[in-house]
Design a protein around this nucleic acid. Structure first.
Lengths: 359, 359
DNA sequence: CGAGCGATTGATATCGATATCATTCCTTCT
DNA sequence: AGAAGGAATGATATCGATATCAATCGCTCG
């Protein structure tokens, strides 16, 4: 029985979507003809190849400009070979996931590589998720925390000859390419902000101890406090797990103290949001009676009210970089060790949850 | 001055990522050779072309199975022409964004089309965002609410010959392809759940009146209440705007009433989360003294505590479908009007925020 | 002054798939 | 029986780019 018409061209609402109608439509060959050189010369200019005369380069660039040429990533990928890059993610609810995906997919589209997204939650163990990606034939894998700190996973990948890229780890293994932020410095920035507002009694809600970032953030906090000559009582540092619920517990603990802190620095936004909720529940006004600071600048930070003062990380850009590194398409002289550990820039975002202490 | 080595092959950690090492490596031609037919026959089988003898089809399918062949989407896209699909999104904080992106990109990878994501917030008006996508040469655009209900936008697209796909609108225009849920039925499901628990005094927090979904959800709520013979006092239906902050206001209003409702149904999870926070603040126990219901099953629903009872929509699948429709690659006889309005399945997810009323 | 070498450029094959057109068989009809 | 037409298949060109190899073109050097 017949199933389809013989290769009916793809249309939508009667309009053909195929090449005949493609708007840009300018190819590398058009540029070559326009510039009076060969296609290869154009290709070389685009790819920033050495040994092109300045004259040729100029001609080609002018033609590219004149024709509005944009290289076709897909076509490029056919010849270079599609690099498949695996991306693991652990927490489907991670608020940064969408920014992460945006950046990762944008870059993937640009360089024409295929992304395989694999939720670790769908497998009995993270190792199984990695195995699945390896079986699928990926050439590299992007590992968000806490997987990036997992020696077993790294060994598994090494055995399969698949390159790992650590994402947002605070303690990058020396031999492993990584994209991260300086958690120590981020925590220090926020702590300085609170100190400058006049706070003295500052408490910290720690993150999940199994994440390397937790430790670094705590270190940044303590170092800055020490530098300012401020004491950090033991009671002012409580355990958390990066979850909203753990933030509720931590907040109850801190706000129940006889000598209540005037500011609470939570190691991430979810916990800061929980602190905010508890404070509301106890009738403590934010920020006049209590300043609350978060970390990550996830969507929740600007969702809740008052909006959270937090540390912004350029997650999308970082994800893009991670994918680029993973695809190994940086194409520069790769011996350069430095570019294998990329640190992204942090920003202190002051919103409505912090203010000078009362009295 | 030289910039790069002459086309240094892309490597990562010294391992080549290029075709020489590609694991799957099985091409259509390998399958053809194995099956003893021409490449075209294999291509036709893959594409479900009519007029293939059952014998050939069987042989090819067996070879595909034997060799573990998987078509290369990228290569396919070079020949068919890359279909660029634009995706607009309005709220960068929308909690469903990541699920949406996941689904959209997964499908895009499968069918080898390129997605252009454009935040409307980056433009003075939504129309400008649409114009940018049109200029970029997209063949179709996926429109989430409230853009999908905007006649001006639709006209703009029609003028450019770009096909629109409405996403999650409650009121699909007849001529426009759409992927949506039945908001009326979803609201009815949740209302029935509350009624079955024994609630009688049920309040509703409406959504943004400019979204068609708000109206449909309210209608579903009212219809179900009426069907159960329950009254809905005017004071029990308050305005909201789908934001956390609007939820705070609405909650204060409802929980301040002399005769307090025993259950509050918020038109989305963000507002439900706000209701939960206000209840905490007023010392009202959830769910024993107050049941709270949300809608959408966004990450926040399982983040906060107690976790929200809500209506789950398969956002990722819906996004995938939207992209598929947009790319116009369904390839089946497209005259079938029915498949142009896809309704996704809803699920009632009962968590800890609802329970029978006290007393 | 010719060999030798590096810089610069182009011709051609190729990537993995589909589009197009041609071809081979059968049926079936006149 | 021969023409006509449709089912089934294959040969070849093509998509837009890069890889490879060969060919120039100076220049320097012995």
């Amino acid at each position: 029985m017949p199933r389809k018409r013989p290769f009916a061209p793809a249309t939508i609402h009667g309009e053909s979507l195929l090449s005949g109608k493609r708007r840009p439509g300018v190819t590398l060959h058009d540029v070559a003809r326009h510039a009076g050189v060969s296609s290869m010369t154009v290709s070389r200019v685009i790819n920033d190849y050495a040994f092109i005369s300045e004259a040729s380069r100029a001609k080609v660039l002018k033609s590219i400009e004149a024709l509005g040429y944009r290289p076709n990533a897909v076509a490029r990928a056919t010849r270079t070979g599609v690099v498949q890059v695996g991306v693991l993610y652990s927490n489907p609810n991670s608020s940064n996931l969408s920014a992460f995906l945006m950046g990762a997919f944008r870059k993937a589209g640009e360089i024409g590589c295929q992304l395989l997204i694999e939720p670790t939650a769908a497998h009995p163990t993270p190792a199984r998720a990695v195995a699945k990606l390896i079986d699928a034939g990926v050439g590299a894998v992007v590992l968000p925390p806490p997987l990036c700190d997992d020696a077993k996973i790294l060994k598994l990948l090494a055995a399969a000859g698949v390159g790992p890229v650590s994402f947002a780890t605070a303690r990058p293994s020396p031999g492993v390419t990584s994209v991260a932020i300086d958690d120590f410095e981020g925590a220090a920035m926020m702590t300085r902000h609170l100190i400058e507002l006049g706070h003295v009694d500052i408490a910290l809600v720690r993150g999940d101890p199994s994440h390397s970032t937790s430790t670094r953030r705590e270190e940044g906090f303590r170092a800055t406090m020490a530098q300012a000559g401020l004491a950090v009582p033991d009671a002012y540092v409580v355990e958390g797990a990066f979850t909203y619920r753990s933030g509720l517990t931590a907040a109850s603990q801190l706000l129940g103290l006889r000598r209540r802190p005037s500011a609470i620095f939570a190691s991430n936004d979810d916990m800061a949001a929980a602190v905010s909720a508890v404070a509301h529940g106890m009738g403590i006004a934010v920020p006049t009676e209590l300043s609350i600071a978060g970390f990550d600048d996830t969507p929740v930070a600007s969702t809740i009210w008052p909006q959270l003062t937090t540390i912004h990380q350029p997650i999308a850009d970082m994800a893009a970089t991670a994918v680029e590194l993973a695809a190994g398409l940086t194409r520069r002289d790769a011996d350069d060790e430095a570019r294998k550990h990329v640190l992204a820039e942090l920003t202190l975002v002051v919103r409505q949850s912090t203010a000078p202490p009362a009295g």
